[in-house]
């Protein structure tokens, strides 16, 4: 690790003085291998008012320093937004979740191996350097939303659930004004600057994530497919919330993980399902709309099939049709 200056923030304004560190589970790891090389780290963990979960209208305001464990275990979250608890518990290990924060989880970096390997070209790490993943091994890369400059996928589970739950990110600007941005608009695509991943400006600080009121009677699930049963990043995940209005689906919300540079959503797919009776034929047609005809990297072609099956299995589960044969996900291991 390169030498650093350590500063402890005593006010929100101090947060602009360098690279913010909170849980440190991703940043410290990247600093050790010199993928991230800040001169100054600013510890915000002692700032007041960022570590609580508070009721707001009928929803919840989750402080940016609330740990993954605290959020997943919160009785209100378990009851009203079970999708969020499930998604958080699907990620990382208990040790990491005890330290990782809500704000930090949103800002975690891709696990593309070329981003991690400083001997390889990476436009996200060093803009203009090139992309070694393009001609390299790429089974963890994205299916959607890539650019010529970057094919990497966002690894978060939590952010995918927050997207399906229509959460907003509360940001404090350098001048002290607070604004709220829907998760869907918080991330920007890689374009020609894959190093810039969000709409955050210099001096901005994430202060909270805000959940809207829970939907009465909604069925929710987070379905994650990975190489091993625990402590592994998703190959594909689907976060879903559906309310059955008699025999038809309403308030359908779906987000897809590890397939794009940010949680992926497709409003046309939702429109196909909203107000309709669940059936395999409908789910197949919706999957045809969702899944792209080709993958941006030959190694992620398998994700087209995997996303299709995971999407259909999730909808079957949410609408009571049951798991489709051959699409079960192992949930236990020996």
């Amino acid at each position: 690790m390169r030498p650093i200056d350590y500063r402890r923030a005593s006010s929100f304004d101090d947060a602009a003085a360098g690279q913010i560190i909170a849980g440190g589970t991703n940043l410290l790891d990247l600093m050790k291998i010199e993928v991230m090389t800040p001169d100054t780290v600013v510890d915000i963990t002692r700032l007041d008012g960022l570590s609580t979960i508070e009721a707001e209208d009928d929803g919840l305001r989750i402080g940016a320093l609330v740990t993954n464990t605290m959020l997943a275990n919160d009785a209100r979250v378990r009851a009203g937004w079970p999708l969020l608890s499930r998604a958080i518990l699907a990620g990382a290990s208990a040790q990491i979740r005890n330290k990782a924060t809500t704000g930090g989880n949103l800002l975690q970096r891709t696990r593309c191996p070329y981003f991690y390997d400083t001997s390889q070209a990476c436009n996200k790490r060093s803009p203009g350097e090139g992309c070694a993943a393009r001609g390299g091994a790429g089974r963890m890369l994205a299916l959607f939303g890539t650019s010529d400059q970057c094919l990497a996928a966002h690894p978060s589970d939590m952010a995918v659930a927050l997207a399906a739950l229509q959460a907003e990110v509360e940001i404090r600007g350098a001048e002290g004004r607070r604004r709220r941005v829907p998760i869907h608009d918080f991330y920007r695509g890689p374009g020609d600057r894959p190093d810039i991943e969000t709409v955050l400006d210099r001096g901005d600080l994430i202060t909270a994530v805000v959940l809207p009121r829970p939907l009465e009677g909604a069925r929710q699930t987070y379905r994650k497919v990975r190489d091993r049963a625990s402590y592994a990043f998703a190959l594909v995940s689907v976060a879903g919330s559906v309310t059955m209005d008699g025999e038809t689906m309403s308030d359908v919300s779906l987000a897809y993980g590890s397939v794009a540079p940010h949680p992926w959503m497709d409003h046309d797919v939702v429109a196909m399902l909203e107000g309709e009776r669940p059936s395999d034929a409908l789910f197949q047609r919706a999957a045809d709309r969702l899944v792209p005809d080709s993958a941006p990297h030959p190694d992620t072609d398998y994700k087209r099939t995997l996303l299709r099956r995971t999407f259909i299995a999730t909808l079957r589960q949410l609408t009571g049709l049951g798991d489709a044969t051959g699409t079960d996900i192992a949930r236990t291991h020996g």
Binding site: Y6, I21, G24, T25, D29, D43, T69, A94, Q95, N98
Partner: peptide
Amino acid sequence: ERVNSCLCL
């Protein structure tokens, strides 16, 4: 709480 001490400054 259990944590990885390698990831704590």
